[in-house]
Simulated assay, not measured.
Amino acid sequence: MTFRSTSRALAVTTATLFALAGVTACSTDGNPAGADPDRVDVVAGFYPLQFLAERIGGDAVAVTNLARPGAEPHDLELNPRQVGQISEAKLVVFLHGFQPAVDEAVEQNAGDRAFDVATVQPLLDATAGGHDHDHEGEDHAEEHAAGGGSDGAKDPHVWLDPTRLATIGDQLAERLGSVDPERAGEYTARAGALRTELEKLDAEFTEGLKTCQRREIVVSHTAFGYLTQKYQLEQISVTGLSPEDDPSPQRLAEVIREAREHGATTIFFETLVSPKVAETIAREVGAQTAVLDPIEGLSTENGADYLSVMRTNLQTLRTALSCS
């Protein structure tokens, strides 16, 4: 299962060699988890997994996020220190296929200490939650599936369905309990509390998006399939699973046509991706632009977290779709 070209993963090989030669040095340089032997050292691939690990682990864990806050996590390239952290962590939480460099480092250094959240539930196809028009042309098919073949690429953005994230949280609690049996009950209890919060969030989305004048959202890349499928919306994506891909002129014209056809008043872009394409489409159809955050590389400096950003997304969607 591959969402990005695995060529970028080659960059981690050199880092791995350096790390294996100096794991001890890595453990004392920038690894806060190693400073407290009473806490479980957990490494998370990117923000949503960090959020889960911190909420379920509580004070019993020390979580290191491999992706820099506010940075695009797909293209993460690991330095030797980070490979050393993966080598030493008691648990590495990652999503196979989302970050090729992390996949390679986990395979080489983590062994049975890795928890792949992609194995908890089957991932959706990249085309799930998409617009149901019959699209013709190989260019669009390739962009929509981000390089997937006839079998279809898989969409990694599973955390945008709160109920699926709750299920992943339950499984993570079990895995933490196996690593740290004395506190297994605490992990289970915190996962249950988080599930209650996520089910409340799910109910807010269900009610908030129940009655809307439109149900199509025009987004910069194919990141919202879980959200649109869960809440009976349809995503019209400019590019596929890779947010940095440039759309072909044919695809851009098709999105403009569909946006006009459905009376779109808002074209969505993301915090970590240039808004230029969204702005171009908006000008063509007389719409405005707004941020719809896929919560991939959230910066928590302003106090935001998964729950608060999801609620901001809900309000943004309600405005854009004229929901009552």
Score class of each variant (00 low, 15 high):
V179P: 01
S248E: 00
Q171G: 02
W159S: 04
R68Q: 09
L165T: 01
L317T: 09
E54D: 12
P294R: 00
V291M: 07
A105E: 00
T13Y: 14
V43R: 07
I86L: 07
L194D: 07
A25L: 06
Q50S: 11
D112K: 10
P122N: 10
P275Q: 07
L194G: 10
G303L: 15
H144C: 02
D59M: 03
A9T: 06
L95G: 04
Q250N: 12
A19V: 06
T16I: 13
T265W: 08
V255H: 02
D116M: 02
Y226M: 01
A223W: 07
H133K: 15
D305E: 13
L321I: 09
E77M: 07
Q232M: 13
L298C: 04
R4A: 14
I217C: 05
A110R: 00
R175V: 02
G57R: 04
Q121C: 04
Q213T: 15
E138Y: 06
A19F: 01
E216H: 15
S248I: 01
K200H: 12
L176G: 03
S178K: 09
F224N: 04
G149Q: 07
N109M: 15
Q108N: 05
G130M: 14
D103W: 04
H131R: 09
F268Q: 10
Q232Y: 10
A67N: 03
R195P: 07
K90V: 01
V255F: 14
A173E: 02
R113G: 01
V285E: 02
D155H: 02
P100I: 00
G97K: 00
T127K: 05
V106T: 04
T280Y: 04
E207F: 01
T6Q: 08
Q99L: 09
L252H: 03
A173W: 10
V106H: 02
E234Q: 13
R164I: 05
N109W: 03
G169S: 02
F98E: 12
G58L: 06
T13V: 14
D41Q: 08
V309M: 14
T167D: 11
D75Y: 08
V291E: 05
K200W: 06
F98Y: 08
A62F: 00
T300K: 15
T280P: 07
E143N: 08
D170T: 14
D29N: 12
G297I: 06
R164S: 01
F224Y: 14
D75S: 05
E197M: 07
R39M: 07
S248P: 00
A184H: 05
G137W: 10
T127R: 05
F51A: 00
D293G: 00
S87L: 05
C212Y: 06
G297R: 03
E54I: 15
T16C: 07
S150L: 15
V120H: 08
R195F: 06
E138Q: 14
A118R: 08
S299Q: 13
F269K: 03
H140T: 04
Q229F: 09
V43I: 11
L252G: 06
F3K: 05
F3T: 13
H133E: 14
R81Q: 11
D116I: 03
E270D: 06
L201Q: 11
A153P: 01
D246W: 03
G240W: 01
T316Y: 12
G22D: 10
S5A: 09
L272M: 03
P162G: 01
E136L: 12
T266Q: 11
Q99V: 11
V40L: 13
T316F: 11
A146M: 11
